[in-house]
Amino acid sequence: MPDLSQDVLRLSALRKSYNIGLPNEMEVLHGINLEIGRTDFAALIGPSGSGKSTLLNVIGLLDKPTSGELYLLGQPTSAMDDEGRTALRGHAIGFVFQFHHLMQAFSAIDNVLMPLMLAQGRPGPKAIAHARALLAAVGLEKYANTKPNQLSGGQQQRVAIARALITEPALLLADEPTGNLDTHTAEEVFGLFRRFNREFGCAVLLVTHDPRLSSACDRTINLVDGAIVSDALNKSPP
């Protein structure tokens, strides 16, 4: 059972620089302190180049911070090796990217199962049933065996969300998940995040440019030039 008293994620004095040791060395994140609770539904906003994506990659253990510590489910991660980080990422974090990023060679259900396949090998009947249930939850039960290139952009993004949820992650990271979708589809996809946050109790951290989306979240974190300038609960959560 997850310990509800604990944060999913805690960043302390986290810094990230690029081109270390070169003349064009550049610090992108300047000492970030941040906590995300078990059931938070937070938006990360900020102008282009503010470091949102870098922060998301560091949180998702795809990128290593230059200094500072990142605690995921209470575990410090800076000393972990690639295998350890991959294993933790595999079960603790679900990713949704702007451009859905599905594997074109695999059917929708195989894409959803991919994180399980990578962690455990051949999926059993339970895993397949779980994947079908998730596809049904995003409204795509009919498209389980369809290849991604035969699905619309919104449908592909929903497959990607189902994939992110298959490992029952504690934290769902989404990098402009609706940035590439029309308004109507964007609202549907956003609705899914909201629903999974409530139903599965997974924390959501959502990077967005869209002020309507961020205001629909419970909390808005504003990143400007690599520093958090404001972090507040929204006045009227829907």
């Binding site: 795809l62 690639d82 295998e83 990713f95 990023h101 994180p115 990578l118």
Partner: peptide, 16 residues
């Protein structure tokens, strides 16, 4: 390259 990135993000290790 991009698919390798996706695999890595969805939990594939370097060895895999």
């Amino acid at each position: 390259t991009r698919e390798i990135g996706i695999l890595r993000a969805t939990g594939a290790t370097r060895r895999q």
